[in-house]
């Protein structure tokens, strides 16, 4: 009996472990080694920290890095602020018959690929786009305005892309919130804001944190949206990595950047968990 269980465990665990090891751990070890290698003056590969030193010595790198981190946190926060009323409406206000339908509407845009969705936004927002066309027609604008290629549009695009990953955990967190808790708080004299900050948010904390982790990681690692919707000044750190690998063909430098991004995301998530006093295992549940 005992052996049977052990065999079953090995049987089911092996593919997962193999997958993790071959596709995630091995390449990362290789990248980590690569990030400490540089070409010396004679064209020989030697061990060095210079890939990492480059990052700190060249302001454009670490400025992009900080910018990406700050914008990712901002996007995560904005996504949360937008998704909370949506999730609240779906779970507590809408009649139960429409809940499934509304959740479906939320999901629907994600049936098409991110690329198509971003192009959709570009058709709407560009100088000769739909919105400009209507604003001109209505006489609100004299001449078309370029709404693409700036930070505001990029952040909006990133929030739009991330909405689903915040609203789904929020919906499931709010579903488990007993309506009578909200009513009890109301009855005890609470206004809307104290109900929000004392009851709804503390109750949905695990959902908020897990949604935030997903949104933050997806945004930090996003390449498409910042690249297509952001302007020349809206550099994203993933674009730096891409440039190193593809444009400069400097894999060693790219690997170092990749690891810095990994450290950054782990650090921010760790800090977020500490600040909200949540445990990673609890949040994943």
């Amino acid at each position: 009996m005992k052996y049977q269980i052990r065999w079953a465990l090995i049987f089911f665990l092996t593919p997962v472990l193999l997958w993790l090891f071959l596709l995630i751990v091995l390449p990362h070890i290789d990248l980590l080694l690569m990030s400490f290698r540089v070409e010396d003056d004679y064209g020989e590969m030697t061990w060095s920290f210079s890939n990492y030193m480059n990052f700190f010595n060249e302001p454009i790198y670490w400025l992009t890095f900080v910018r990406t981190a700050v914008y990712s946190i901002l996007v995560t926060f904005l996504t949360f602020v937008t998704a909370l009323p949506v999730a609240f409406y779906i779970t507590k206000v809408a009649s139960p018959r429409f809940q499934g339908f509304l959740a479906m509407l939320l999901l629907l845009p994600f049936w098409v690929s991110e690329l198509v969705r971003v192009y959709g936004w570009m058709i709407l927002l560009r100088e000769s786009g739909v919105i400009n066309h209507f604003l001109l027609r209505l006489g609100i604008l004299d001449r078309p305005v370029e709404m693409l290629y700036n930070d505001v549009t990029m952040v909006m695009g990133l929030v739009y892309t991330s909405m689903l990953f915040m609203s789904v955990p929020l919906i499931s967190a709010l579903e488990s919130l007993d309506n009578s808790l909200i009513e009890a708080a109301y009855d005890l004299g609470a206004d809307m804001w104290s109900i929000l900050f004392r009851i709804i948010i503390p109750h949905s904390m695990p959902g908020i944190v897990s949604g935030s982790i997903v949104v933050f990681m997806l945004t930090l690692g996003n390449y498409l949206t910042p690249n297509l919707m952001g302007g020349k000044n809206s550099l994203w750190f993933t674009e730096q990595i891409y440039n190193q690998f593809i444009a400069s063909f400097n894999w060693n430098q790219g690997a170092a950047f990749g690891f810095l991004l990994l450290v950054l995301s782990s650090l921010v998530i760790w800090t977020g968990l500490k600040l909200t006093r949540q445990k990673l295992t609890g949040v994943i549940k």
Partner: peptide, 21 residues
Amino acid sequence: IPPNKRPVNLIFQHLALFPMM
């Protein structure tokens, strides 16, 4: 007059104590 402004309080059937506090 909304519930939060009335001089009455309600004890709910399942009590509705706040579990986070």
